[in-house]
Computed example of a mutant assay.
Amino acid sequence: MAATGDESAVMDSICKAPAPPTDLQLTAEPEPEHEHEQEHRRDDATENPKAKRPSTNNDGGVETAEEATEPAEPDINELCRDMFDKMSVFLQGELTATCEDYKLLENMNKLTSLKYMEMKDISINISRNLQDLNQKYASLQPYLDQINQIEEQVTALEQAAYKLDTYSKKLEAKFKKLEKR
Rank of each mutant, 00 (worst) to 15 (best):
Y143P: 00
Y143K: 07
Y143C: 01
Y143F: 06
L144F: 08
L144P: 00
L144G: 00
L144K: 10
L144V: 09
D145W: 01
D145M: 02
D145L: 01
D145R: 07
D145V: 06
D145K: 11
Q146D: 06
Q146P: 00
Q146G: 00
Q146T: 13
Q146C: 02
Q146F: 03
I147Q: 06
I147N: 05
I147M: 08
I147P: 02
I147V: 15
I147G: 01
I147A: 09
I147R: 12
N148K: 15
N148F: 05
N148C: 02
N148Q: 13
N148L: 09
Q149W: 01
Q149M: 01
Q149V: 07
Q149C: 00
Q149I: 08
I150R: 10
I150H: 04
I150G: 01
I150L: 11
I150Y: 07
I150M: 06
E151D: 10
E151I: 06
E151H: 12
E152A: 10
Q153H: 06
Q153K: 14
Q153I: 09
Q153E: 08
Q153M: 08
V154H: 03
V154Y: 03
V154W: 02
V154P: 01
T155M: 02
T155N: 04
T155W: 03
T155G: 02
A156F: 03
A156R: 09
A156H: 05
A156V: 10
A156W: 04
A156M: 05
L157K: 04
L157C: 03
L157Q: 04
L157V: 02
E158S: 07
E158L: 05
E158A: 05
E158T: 14
E158W: 07
E158K: 10
Q159F: 08
Q159T: 15
Q159S: 11
Q159H: 11
A160T: 06
A160F: 05
A160I: 04
A161F: 04
A161M: 03
Y162S: 11
Y162E: 08
Y162L: 11
Y162C: 01
Y162I: 14
K163Y: 08
K163E: 10
K163I: 13
K163G: 01
K163W: 07
L164M: 12
L164S: 12
L164C: 09
L164H: 13
L164N: 15
L164Y: 10
L164Q: 14
D165C: 07
D165R: 10
D165H: 13
D165A: 09
T166S: 12
T166D: 15
T166P: 01
T166W: 10
T166I: 13
T166R: 10
Y167F: 08
Y167R: 14
Y167E: 04
Y167N: 11
Y167V: 02
Y167D: 05
S168G: 05
S168M: 13
S168Q: 14
K169H: 13
K169G: 06
K169D: 14
K170H: 13
K170Y: 11
K170L: 11
K170D: 13
K170I: 14
K170E: 14
K170R: 13
L171G: 04
L171C: 08
L171M: 09
E172F: 12
E172N: 15
E172S: 15
E172R: 15
E172H: 14
E172Q: 15
A173P: 04
A173W: 10
A173C: 03
A173N: 08
A173S: 12
